[in-house]
Amino acid sequence: MTELLQTLIFGALIGGVYALMATGLTLTFGVMKIVNMTQGALLVLSAYLCYSLWVHFGIDPILGAFLITAPMGLLGVALYKLVIERVQRIDHGLTIVATFALAMIAEGLIALAWGPNTRATTPPYFNRSFRIGSLVVPQAQLYACLLAIGVTVVLQLVIKRSWLGYAITAASENPEGARLVGVEPVRVGAWIFAISVASTAFGGAALSFLFQFVPDSQDVWIGLTLSVVILGGLGSLAGAFAAGLLLGVAEAMTTTYVSVRWATAVPTLMILIVLTIRPQGLFTRATRQDLAT
């Protein structure tokens, strides 16, 4: 019983972190129908930036995440303006190929900048735990999960309650209608990418003290974040959160009860199962699409 409970705690905490890591991808996927294959590389980049701030200035990675949101946001705008927007105009289907190419470039640049060695940040809490009876709650996981909840709530408020959120919803669904009320979809797209990439900074910070990373870790993280988004159902933030939890628990269960070797296969397997059985995701309902206008 304790073992099961402990597994659930580990799984849920790490699941929250997975959702946090996927937030940026959830946004671009949900509102722009763009599969941003650079998500993994952006996470790893954020982790390296947090690492550098930690090693050179002793800045805590969570604080570091707040410091790098602005430059990461600008990077997002640059990605959108220089590549995504152009490719979208040529052929929307090619955006996935273009972002894949960007991920390769990013990985190459990261390897040149930081070298091939394994890195991680080690803030004081990275190996401490709270104990409740016989149960262990690792501090690092807990803080990362709280960060995840915070970021999700803030983003949800922005989307549902702000003019920017209305403009995002409007432009993503009906670009020409949006232009007619004075919303420029291109500007909105830049905002979405700014928010998406900036929010990735938090996922990257969590990555930096929870896992070790090398430049090609991005392969693992793109696979994982994709599976969160797909499970959650095409870009709903709440759905992605639920999916992250599910994935975290499934992985923890596999590690405890099957074998740690197969735990890495869980996200990939989930992608396959969901996309073949329920392509619209686990946490969405089918909506009426044929209403005549």
Partner: peptide, 13 residues
């Protein structure tokens, strides 16, 4: 990685 990523991107663009 830089060469092939860059090439792929250039072709798409």
């Amino acid at each position: 990685l830089l060469i092939f990523g860059g090439l792929l991107l250039a072709v798409v663009l």
